[in-house]
Amino acid sequence: MSLITTILGRLVKAAITLLAIAVLNFFLIHAAPGDPAAVLAGEAGAADPLFIAQLRERFGLDQPLYVQLWSYVKNVLTLDLGYSFRQGMPVYDLIAQRLPATLLLTLSSFVISLSLGIAFGVAAAARVGKASDSVLTTIALLFYATPLYWAALMAVLVFSVQLGWLPGFGYETVGSGYSGLARAWDILQHLILPALTLGLFFMAVYMRMTRASMLEVSQMDFVKTARAKGLSGPVIRRRHILRNALLPVVTLAGLQAGQLIGGAVLTETVFAWPGIGRLMFESLEARDYNTILGVFLVSAAMVIVFNILTDIVYRIVDPRIGAKS
């Protein structure tokens, strides 16, 4: 019950946050030099002021800013993200086309980074001070210190170009005609490199956190009590230490969701992954106002969903809640 009320409360807060984000971004993006009409005219290779004036009128850019803001907010309140004049289609459709790719990428990176991070963190903490601990810690540090885009480029060079094991870019084999399982397998192959490069960076973060947290918890009194009771090492680790140690890790993971989605911009660029991160970057350059605002709203919504997800995980992990049920 309490879970549902909490989630409902968070959803209401989230809606307010999203609206505020819409307004802030509206002003930010309109403060940028140039507008979509100028970009389109510029790309046409020839344009006269009449042409640009026509475009501005068509896009509604000849209206005062507050009128544009008001109509945008009204749209957002009715869950309408507006129309992309550049792409000639509703922003909602545009994002719907691209969102699955980003969700697939970020969710798999999230799962990879969290599960590997926790696993390695636990392993390192159990071998604290030994050589294998140092090796794991050092590897994690290296991943953490490597620029994401650089790791991505190197991964393409090694695994795609040199070894030819995995496709280096794209979402699926274009025009392959695959369907069903064959298609899923195809997409999976394309997913491995981008999801790993994005995930390994965050894995390093979670691993260090897990390790530190495990060590901290293992010094606590209740663990000492359990040891005194004669419980075996693995049992203590699993039942007592891990559960408590995971709490800060899960909290951190929720907070990092925004960074994960931001990092997708780089990953999607290097791997030509057709997601909304790249859509954002491209529509920013094109000053495609509605699209970029829409992408920001959707990615902020994704952050909120990730946060709620981690909240749920938190409650599952939290031993105090677990004890009640």
Partner: peptide
């Protein structure tokens, strides 16, 4: 019979796409 125009945003990836025959 058919033509695919491929969108690949990064110049280095475009070169790789040509090298791998894609």
């Amino acid at each position: 019979d058919e033509v695919y125009y491929r969108v690949i945003p990064d110049a280095a990836s475009r070169a790789v796409a040509f090298e791998t025959g894609e």
